[in-house]
Amino acid sequence: MLDALLSFLILTGAIFTFIGSLGLVRLRDFYTRLHGPTKATTLGVGSLLIASSLFFSTRGEGVSLHEVLVTLFLFITAPVSAHLLSKAALHLKLHSLAPLPQGERSESSGPNRSTVSQNSERDAQ
């Protein structure tokens, strides 16, 4: 029973990790590629870590919960890096399959007051 559950969690985790990287190769513009690694991979690594926690907890040496720490950390950091990456891509004006909404093109990149980039964006238009 435990063996089946562990196998299931390990396989799910590995499959999601693989699908995340597959998305990195298959999808066609940067903004859509961003979705693969940030989502599929967090669930993949999350379920691998749950499997590891179960595995070490059932070996008679007490509960092993420190995997929770890595899971928690990944769940906090993955969205932050996704947000920063997409902000950087917008700043570099990477080609996107989706059109930008009106009024977004002339704005500076976020609240960090980058006046130089504002000027260069205005010049580009």
């Binding site: 769940f75 969205p79 932050v80 996704a82 704005e107 609240p111």
Partner: peptide, 13 residues
């Protein structure tokens, strides 16, 4: 960023 197929990209100033 974590949920339904979306990534937040930019907060307006």
């Amino acid at each position: 960023c974590l949920t339904p197929g979306t990534v937040s990209s930019r907060l307006s100033p």
